[in-house]
């Protein structure tokens, strides 16, 4: 069963003359362990796709299924639980809360979900340790470098038993080494079974994905073929 399924999603903003059709009949399934990148020029609907997949916004028509369950049919409480427990978000500017330390930022979604403070804190510390940030757990966001903030954001998005990672331009304004770093972390999360959707205009970042889909004027215009396997490139006669 796919972790995320979008069925014929359309999204219209505004009415009448101001009407903008952001998405038109987009269908997409993402399996556990799979990374899908979404590319397209600005205004092609990339970010709408992500907010709808993240249940932060309702589609105008079509259905969003998380682990096979139709989000539209869920109660408000159930939807909030899915957001807190199943989905992790990574934003362009990482959105860390400035008044909380690194480990508190990571522990926050667990605490909000009712995990005891102590257990949430331990899970947060463990997630940071896994990303090489054990020594920075008590630092505040403004004491962290860009690369460290980005790792904290990924730790927060993957802490607990999260199954779906949604990232919008996750490398933000980072340099290429740190941009690669963020993709390696998402790639590693996928190897552990997390499904990921990464929106980016950067082909180098997108090339980390198993599948790249191209949006054009709100439509799924094209996508890359299934992976050919790493050996194909080396075997190609030069």
């Amino acid at each position: 069963m796919s972790v995320l399924e979008l069925r014929s999603i359309s999204k219209v903003y505004g009415k009448g003359a101001a009407e903008v059709q952001a998405l038109r009949d987009v269908s997409l399934t993402v399996a556990a362990g799979e990374m899908v990148a979404v590319m397209g020029p600005s205004g092609s609907g990339k970010s709408s796709l992500l907010t709808i997949a993240g249940t932060l916004e309702e589609p105008t028509s079509g259905a969003v299924l998380i682990n096979g369950e139709d989000v539209h049919a869920m109660s408000g409480g159930a939807k909030a639980r899915v957001r807190r427990r199943t989905i992790g978000y990574v934003f362009q500017d990482f959105n860390l809360l400035p008044g909380l330390t690194a480990v508190e930022n990571v522990a926050l979604p667990l605490e909000l979900d009712g995990t005891s403070m102590r257990r949430a804190y331990l899970a947060g510390a463990k997630a940071l340790e896994a990303l090489g940030l054990a020594g920075r757990a008590r630092a505040f966001p403004d004491q962290l470098s860009g690369g460290e903030r980005q790792r904290v954001a990924i730790a927060r998005a993957t802490v607990g038993e999260r199954q779906l990672l949604l990232a919008d331009e996750p490398s933000g304004a980072l340099d290429s080494a740190n941009g690669e770093g963020v993709m390696r972390l998402i790639h590693a999360a996928c190897k552990r079974g997390v499904a990921a959707v990464v929106v980016t205009h950067d082909a180098q970042l997108a090339s980390w994905a198993d599948r790249v889909i191209f949006l054009r004027d709100g439509r799924l215009a094209d996508q890359t073929a299934a992976p050919a396997g790493p050996e194909s490139l080396l075997e190609r006669p030069s």
Binding site: R184, Q204, S207, A209, Q223, A225, P227, A228
Partner: peptide, 24 residues
């Protein structure tokens, strides 16, 4: 788009090699 798709697929193949190799 046909050329873009081809190039991105090629990049995926290279990146896959890099992903399998140890990181910096």
């Amino acid at each position: 788009q046909a050329h873009r798709r081809y190039l991105v697929q090629l990049m995926q193949e290279w990146t896959r090699l890099k992903g399998d190799a140890p990181g910096a």
